[in-house]
């Protein structure tokens, strides 16, 4: 069989290692793909634009309209704003095992939206509304963290998520 790398490399051993590294890259890429399909992971795909500099003057992201709302089907929509340096409202309470849709927008620069120990994570790009669909199986106290460097107070940018046992009731 003709080896296409013969044109650039005379050494047999070196060519073998070139092939091994290429095969390793494909194997790892394939594994990542399989893992993503098997765990039902999707990149956030919502594309909706919004003017971040006027966020507090919009209807959906007005200060009094933020927070948890219950939908007709029993699922929840949580509207939040990421702004230097916090997530607002600063405390969110949701029941466990309930579908939750987060709609998050940035009021200033690029932020990250991440709840450690859960699969809720996305980038919050100024000018866009980010959406995350998830549910939280384990009741407890969690944190929202910003994981995209956003300025000098980036390390102060956190807020609280409280997942209540389902028997404790619905949206609050």
């Amino acid at each position: 069989m003709h080896d296409p790398f013969k044109a650039i490399c005379d050494d047999d051993l070196e060519r073998r290692w070139i092939w091994i590294s290429i095969i390793m890259a494909f194997v790892m890429g394939g594994l990542l793909g399989l893992y993503a399909v098997a765990s039902n992971m999707h990149p956030p795909s919502n594309v909706e634009t919004i003017d971040s500099s006027r966020l507090h003057l919009t209807e959906e992201f007005a200060e009094d309209n933020l927070g948890v709302k219950e939908n007709d089907d029993g699922s929840l929509t949580v509207t939040m704003v990421a702004a230097r340096y916090g997530f607002y409202p600063s405390v969110i309470e949701v029941p466990a095992d309930t579908p939750v849709k987060f709609r998050v927008a940035s009021a200033d620069v690029l932020h990250g939206f991440h709840v450690p120990f859960t699969n809720a994570a996305t980038m919050v790009v100024p000018g866009y509304i980010s959406e995350v669909n998830t549910s939280f199986p384990t009741p407890g106290k969690y944190s929202f963290l910003c994981n995209e460097y956003c300025g000098l107070g980036h390390d102060s940018m956190w807020s609280r998520l409280i997942v209540l046992p389902k028997s404790a009731g619905g949206a609050s």
Binding site: D51, S53, R54, L55, H56, L57, A62, E63, D64, N65
Partner: peptide, 16 residues
């Protein structure tokens, strides 16, 4: 009531 009263805390936006 809260929805009807939804008023921004400031009318100033630092837009262009």
């Amino acid at each position: 009531t809260p929805v009807v009263n939804a008023e921004p805390s400031s009318a100033v936006a630092f837009d262009l």
